[in-house]
Write a protein that binds this DNA or RNA. Structure first.
Lengths: 171, 171
DNA sequence: CTATTTTGCTTCGAATTTGAAGCATGAGGC
DNA sequence: GCCTCATGCTTCAAATTCGAAGCAAAATAG
């Protein structure tokens, strides 16, 4: 870490490129297939399922902010989606006892039941599409890599633009 | 095909779960940051950039179907986006000489110039957010794994629903 | 204690996305 | 050559998305 090499402005080498493209593609494909399955199976979008799953995994109640933080999503979009879930009777919204501003979202029994019902099929999709061609060792490695990347991305909030404005930009 | 092991209906074990969640999260986070950057830098959405990059990488002209196949996208959405790109002067649309039905999309010089202008920053984002915490070995492994998964997903077109409806569902 | 700033959420309008339906051309069967 | 089906793309209406603006409660400053 003595002096940063000019690594930053070099093009990606072929290995990086191919890894990046493959990752993007897998992400998109997986997302689409999961979407399709959830829609067909339980009439839910991916986000809605993630929200219910988050609630189910935690203590059953989270604030809007906690939910939005887990799922990568805009605040207003979250309001909309939680509204739909509430209308469907899968969650309820109420004020937080601690903080009058916060809305506490709680999963209903019906919501839990739906998650339980959809989960097996969801898992089957993920297993069949994602994990099938991977060995145990691949799996460990993938988990390790992705966890590290995620922590890295979560650690540093994204600079909106101009990551290093040392020299005047040609803009 | 003698008797399928009950592997299929087991829940994902913790390693699989954590790998799956981390992968999803990284995918979402990366997509959002790329989106933000491209929008700020060149006024393009991710899809538009991918379309231009696809055209740039190939011979400069592709049919709508070829484009949609590369990017994971709906046909109608593609029509809309290509329409925007055309309006912006970055691509042109014309009939295919071979097939009267096909629309051939060509990138303009302006389009190429825009790609050239945005690419370095895009690469900087990807490098900084995705590759920074990875060693060379990680990189190779990641590329290998993702390539294999992608090929696997591309090979078998997704079953719309009901992968194995052997026993009457409790629906 | 009051003024200011911050935080949490919702509402709003504009842009995007999607699947279904529509239209025209190409390919096959007869 | 016709008739039927498949293919390539666009149009359409409805749903979803986002950021900006708005509003109320809480934290902070003085």
């Amino acid at each position: 870490m003595s002096d940063s090499p000019p690594d930053d402005d070099r093009p990606l080498d072929p290995r990086q490129l191919s890894a990046y493209f493959a990752l993007s593609e897998v992400g998109s494909l997986l997302q689409h297939e999961v979407e399709r399955h959830l829609r067909a199976e339980g009439g839910l979008s991916t986000v809605q399922f993630q929200l219910l799953a988050s609630l189910d995994a935690s203590d059953g109640r989270l604030t809007m902010t906690q939910l939005a933080d887990g799922v990568v999503y805009s605040r207003s979009g979250l309001t909309y989606q939680v509204g739909l879930l509430e209308k469907a009777g899968l969650v309820t919204r109420g004020p937080s006892p601690d903080d009058e501003r916060s809305t506490l979202v709680s999963i209903t029994d019906e919501g839990r039941a739906l998650v339980e019902r959809i989960l097996p099929g969801h898992i089957r999709v993920v297993r069949g599409r994602l994990f099938e061609p991977l060995s145990d060792e691949d799996l460990d490695r993938l988990g390790d890599i992705m966890t590290r990347v995620r922590d890295h991305m979560r650690a540093r909030p994204p600079r909106s633009a101009a990551p290093r404005r040392r020299r005047g930009p040609a803009d």
